[in-house]
């Protein structure tokens, strides 16, 4: 698929060279390099989760759900505040129930009345949902910074210190998070491939009318899809909250996930995962290793690459492969 598309090859090659250059030029000790890589992967997992939420909903209902980031915040707030009054596990389950109810309400009050409206109207509606959730979360649970305690030791652990000089510092919490994310992705893919409900979801994603004709109720499917997006948001929210605290900036993660879905393809869950990892690693590497080089070469103030790297990469991808890595290619007959 990629073999015949040389601009994509070129871009991928540039990314790969960028990835190995710091090691090849001995600009960084290997231990430090791996730490940066792992840090990037961790951020990438979070981006992937949020982007997955986007892709799921876009695929099934053609709605670009701008509120995915707000859902992450809302879920994280729910867990953080509920966990103050009850055991964490109960709080998480309760938060999931809240997300399902939310999905149902969104379907009833926002999507159903807007069926067959223009995509822009639906995008605006989800923008409205975003601000509502931001505000309503604050109304319910307050606007301080809250903590989610997962009960996993925060102190970084030194591993492989006999292999590399200085060893590698890793966070147990990060590993747990990556494991949970991997489990979630596996469970979802089994659900989509093997179950009749999963099949129905894929059917709806492909063709609404035909799905209806074989007796798949669209409204119920939308509630399920939004609930799954809610579950994904919940997992992302818990990870984020445990790492950096629950605060309103969490909602901005949606803006970081946007280039991820462009990279991965709007309708592809696998693309969202891969895109998230590429951007997570890419921006960390660029910040840490490309930044100083640019400072030296052009006498700049440096820093800030992390903020724009994802978007520049997404723009490049739009130029060479607009449908994204795994997106559907549309060839319209004219």
């Amino acid at each position: 698929m990629l073999a015949r598309n040389w601009p994509v090859m070129l871009l991928s090659a540039a990314l790969m060279i960028g990835l190995v250059l710091p090691l090849a030029t001995k600009a960084s000790p290997p231990g430090f390099y791996i730490e940066v890589l792992l840090g990037g992967l961790m951020a990438g997992v979070l981006y992937s989760l949020v982007a997955m939420g986007f892709a799921l909903i876009f695929k099934a209902s053609g709605v670009f759900n701008f509120a995915q980031g707000a859902m992450v915040l809302f879920a994280a707030l729910a867990v953080a505040r509920l966990a103050e009054q009850m055991p964490l596990a109960v709080a998480v389950v309760l938060a999931f129930v809240i997300m399902v109810v939310l999905a149902w309400l969104i379907e009833r009050l926002v999507l159903r009345p807007l069926v067959n409206q223009e995509g822009v109207a639906l995008l605006m509606a989800t923008l409205g949902v975003t601000y509502f959730l931001d505000g309503f979360g604050q109304t319910l649970w307050g606007s301080d910074i809250y903590k989610i305690e997962l009960g996993i030791a925060k102190e970084p652990v030194m591993i492989l210190d006999n292999v590399f000089q200085g060893g590698i510092l890793v966070n147990k919490e990060d590993f747990a998070a990556a494991l949970v994310a991997a489990l979630l992705v596996t469970a979802l893919s089994v659900f989509f491939q093997k179950t009749s409900t999963g099949r129905a979801l894929r059917a709806v994603a492909d063709d609404h009318q035909a799905a209806q004709s074989i007796g798949i109720p669209l409204n119920r499917i939308w509630v399920i899809v939004w609930s799954i997006a809610g579950l994904v948001a919940l997992v992302a929210g818990i990870m984020w909250g445990a790492k950096l605290g629950v605060q309103f900036s969490v909602s901005q993660v949606a803006l970081k996930a946007l280039p991820v879905v462009i990279l991965g393809g709007f309708t592809s869950v696998n693309g969202a995962i891969l895109g998230g990892l590429i951007i997570g690693v890419g921006e960390k590497m660029a910040e840490v290793f490309l930044g100083p080089v640019m400072v030296k070469m052009f006498d700049l103030a440096g820093g800030g690459i992390e903020n724009w790297f994802a978007y520049v990469l997404a723009l490049l991808f739009l130029l060479v492969r607009p449908e994204g890595l795994f997106g559907e290619k549309h060839i319209d007959r004219v």
Partner: peptide, 21 residues
């Protein structure tokens, strides 16, 4: 359907299996 309304992301077999859903 008059205009084909198949599930493009699926194989022939999977498409037909959806009829059993």
């Amino acid at each position: 359907f008059q205009n084909l309304a198949l599930f493009k992301g699926m194989s022939v077999l999977e498409n037909i299996m959806t009829g059993r859903n």
